[in-house]
Design a protein around this nucleic acid. Structure first.
Length: 300
DNA sequence: CTCGATCCCTGGACGC
DNA sequence: TGCGTCCAGGGATCGA
């Protein structure tokens, strides 16, 4: 599940591996997750990758102008979102293609940059000019770049649950389920707490913990839960440092209370019921939901 | 504005 | 061994 640290790891690997490479040809497999497959086939051949960046959970492969079209001086990039199971890595042409290889870019040095994605929850788009800047503007602040004031402003003015806010890419870009739960646990904030109900100290703590968690995870090349591999095909190691994520039923590292799992913002959320104090609305909400699920099951 | 529900998709876990 | 069922989850979308 590539989130900010995993995508950053891939971006750094690709920056090292494919910067300066010219794209000679494009081969597409299944294209239902590509915005405009024809645009890839039309625009990519002949272009060079000038740099690779991370933008939220997107990889941004910046492209140069085409030699035959200097009049249109606009920025162009290939956006790649890895979804849940996406892999993007350069491989030798003679290396057998993994199952679910859907995009192959033949590079000038003879290697192929391959996109592999079994579930196709990813997204690929060629964007240029206004279309590119409009797309990037949809997203919120980068948690590593935003200062405390900006972070606080985006959280405290909202009535949504803090977990939902952290996952909302138009609020904060790059955070996913794992790092949301990890930072909330470290900051001792319940995932169902409302953003507007957080105190100044809590927001400051969350901001600091989130940054520290993301930075440490980047150092360890991300978390490999099941599928994640970086641009060199190597797994990350941050999963060994998870404090709550995936630890339902196990003792809290701080207080030994049994870690619980609940659905918040539509996602599995792991938390310590002792360290992370539930908001008043939480108990009532859980009871209502449990009853609803029972009746749904009875009907089916 | 915020919510939950639903869909997309495949593979892995699990029960029998 | 094999089959069915459930679940994982980021994001888009829709109705309440």
């Amino acid at each position: 599940m590539p989130e900010l640290p995993e995508v950053e790891t891939v971006a750094r690997g690709l920056q090292r591996e494919v910067t300066g490479q010219k794209i000679l040809s494009v081969t597409l497999g299944k294209t239902d997750f590509i915005d405009n497959p024809a645009a890839l086939e039309r625009e990519l051949p002949g272009r060079s990758i000038t740099r690779v960046e991370r933008y939220g959970k997107f990889l941004l492969l910046r492209l140069n102008m085409r030699e035959d079209a200097q009049e249109q001086k606009e920025e162009a990039a290939l956006l790649v979102h890895l979804g849940m199971t996406g892999l993007l890595m350069p491989q030798p042409v003679n290396q057998p293609q993994a199952k679910h290889t859907h995009v192959i870019l033949l590079l000038g040095d003879g290697r192929e940059l391959r996109y592999i994605d079994p579930r196709r929850f990813g997204r690929i788009a060629y964007l240029a000019g206004d279309g590119l800047s409009r797309e990037l503007q949809k997203f919120g602040a980068d948690p590593l770049e935003a200062n405390l004031e900006e972070f606080a402003q985006r959280i405290q003015q909202r009535r949504a649950r803090i977990k939902a806010l952290l996952l909302d890419q138009s609020v904060i870009r790059g955070v996913g389920n794992i790092y949301a739960d990890e930072s909330l646990w470290k900051a001792r904030i319940h995932p169902a707490q409302l953003g507007a109900r957080l105190g100044r100290a809590q927001v400051k703590e969350l901001y600091a913990r989130l940054q520290k968690t993301l930075q440490k995870a980047i150092q360890l090349r991300g978390s490999s839960i099941s599928d994640f591999l970086d641009a060199e095909g190597m797994p990350g190691e941050y999963q060994l440092h998870h404090r709550v994520y995936g630890r339902e039923g196990k003792p809290c590292f701080r207080c030994k209370t049994t870690i619980r799992r609940a659905i918040v913002a539509g996602r599995s959320s792991y938390y310590c019921p002792n360290c992370q104090k539930a908001p008043r609305s939480w108990k009532k909400l859980r009871r209502r939901k449990a009853g609803k699920q029972r009746s749904t099951k009875n009907r089916a």
